[in-house]
Design a protein around this nucleic acid. Structure first.
Lengths: 109, 109
DNA sequence: TTTATTAATCGTATTATTGCAATATAACAT
DNA sequence: ATGTTATATTGCAATAATACGATTAATAAA
């Protein structure tokens, strides 16, 4: 039904899924990579860089803002976006915890 | 329009987005965690464990199989699923590459 | 004040995803 | 052969996501 049954899963699973979903789009990956490369950037840079419409870029920025991985500060008429290092580190840790070492255990295939 | 403009992005970005999207659901995270914990499992285990319908679990398993992160081997009437360690390691590496260290750079916020 | 610039939001069309009942398939058991 | 068990697939309904034009809001520049 397009609607995830979050009540069937624990908090960690739901939290991780939300994080992954927020990152799971090439435009949002490109946005994050561009911000990291340039240290910061404004919406219009991304419109030119990625070739998507301004409304679309703005929507992707909002999704990244929602999970807190980026933050923006007003700078004249534009808004300067940069990485929220705390959340970035948390995301990194959470993913590392998920990707535990699975070598040397018995399996069927 | 519900359709991602993959041609706007590079291969690495699209590949990473596909990986993240495949993982971006609490049921699929739970499935992977269960497989890791038990070393392997069959579909019916997951149906009981997660509480979702058999058709739904089967669908999630297929998505994980599509990106290759799990593989199944026929074992009588059931199919034994386990982690594909090679792909798991690749996913881990790809995510680690993305989550580069971003500390100590200038930013606007 | 008027105009330009920049970004957010709204509305809408289109496609994707989620979930499940029903059915199909395939191997084993009797 | 027939029934049982386990999984995959199909078809469908409901919701979510993607993209963009149009509009709005807010600041800067003239």
């Amino acid at each position: 039904m397009g609607v995830t049954k979050t009540e069937f899963f624990n908090e960690q699973q739901n939290r991780l899924a939300i994080l992954l979903k927020a990152l799971a789009h090439p435009a949002r990956i490109a946005i994050l990579q561009h911000i990291i490369k340039q240290n910061a950037c404004i919406c219009n840079d991304l419109v030119e860089e990625l070739g998507l419409a301004q409304a679309t870029i703005s929507q992707h920025l909002r999704e990244l803002k929602t999970i807190g991985i980026i933050k923006g500060s007003i700078e004249g008429t534009s808004i300067c976006y940069c990485i929220n290092e705390t959340v970035w580190q948390q995301a990194k840790d959470e993913l590392n915890n998920f990707f535990v070492d699975i070598t040397s255990v018995n399996r069927c295939c």
